[in-house]
Design a binder for these strands. Structure first.
Lengths: 147, 147
DNA sequence: GTATATGCAAAGGGTTTGCACGGTT
DNA sequence: AACCGTGCAAACCCTTTGCATATAC
């Protein structure tokens, strides 16, 4: 599962293209990247690639399970490779920085939700907003804001 | 705090207008409403109101703390009144329905995140995605999808 | 050789903004 | 009367789509 992306694509009935390899590599390299950021990264090696291709490739990569996306704010979603350990995104509303914590930290919550409602939570999908340690101690309420 | 929205607006330096009262009422009535849905609701009483006004009013209402928004999917955010008990939104990726659970269920998680990273999580802000009880038992993977 | 993937450009949905008018204070 | 808020329309993202060409198989 943490191997041979090409085989994974083929298994899904998709062809191997330079764009797909480049976009996947960009997602792996960047972590938490938006489509726009992914395009920039890809452009360093292949300036001809189009944004619409990035969108289409991301759909494909997500379909075969090589990447996942999370909604970090009102803007574009961010993508990360599934080869990374599952994690929850913590987004600071003041400085907009993103940090990660393992999803295992929420295991009890997921279980409790399941038992209470029958809902199987995919905790890594959405980001959790709040204020990071630095902004809590430094900045006063009402700074820039990521949202 | 669960009182006199007009006073809250004034305290924030804002004027009282019919639009602001209508939009707030719509948010209270609808729960989990998008700007578009709020507009429809408002239009029943005041057909002249404009979408841009809804957006501006929501910003104001959020600024003074009368409403909050959460990102439920890739689409528009949904707004709810702060007079409601704080809750976490559970969004089913198959049937797109939204259910709520009290934020208290995540108290341990919030504490753990705080202790581990110093991050103060605002757990109610983002929706948690997953699959609801019905869709887990009925539908097979790959239904309509809300995302 | 054939079906799929890409680039390009245009369209589409959601949100924001400039401006003149109207309403609140 | 002064200033803030609204309606309207245009502008602006971000994302999707139609079509002809290029590419993987």
């Amino acid at each position: 599962m943490t191997e041979a992306p090409d085989a994974t694509l083929r298994a899904g009935g998709y062809r191997i293209t330079a764009q797909r390899q480049l976009v996947l590599q960009a997602v792996v390299d960047l972590r938490h990247a938006t489509p726009e950021q992914i395009l920039s990264h890809v452009h360093r090696q292949a300036p001809g690639v189009n944004l619409s291709t990035v969108y289409r490739v991301l759909t494909v990569l997500e379909d075969v399970g090589l990447v996942r996306h999370a909604h970090i704010s009102t803007g574009s979603p961010t993508y990360h490779a599934t080869e990374e350990a599952p994690h929850i995104h913590l987004v600071c509303r003041d400085c907009a920085r993103v940090q990660s914590v393992p999803t295992s930290i929420a295991a009890a919550l997921v279980t409790e939700i399941d038992e209470g409602t029958g809902f199987l939570a995919d905790i890594g999908h959405a980001a959790i907003h709040g204020r990071c340690r630095e902004c809590r101690s430094t900045t006063k309420p009402g700074a820039e804001g990521s949202d």
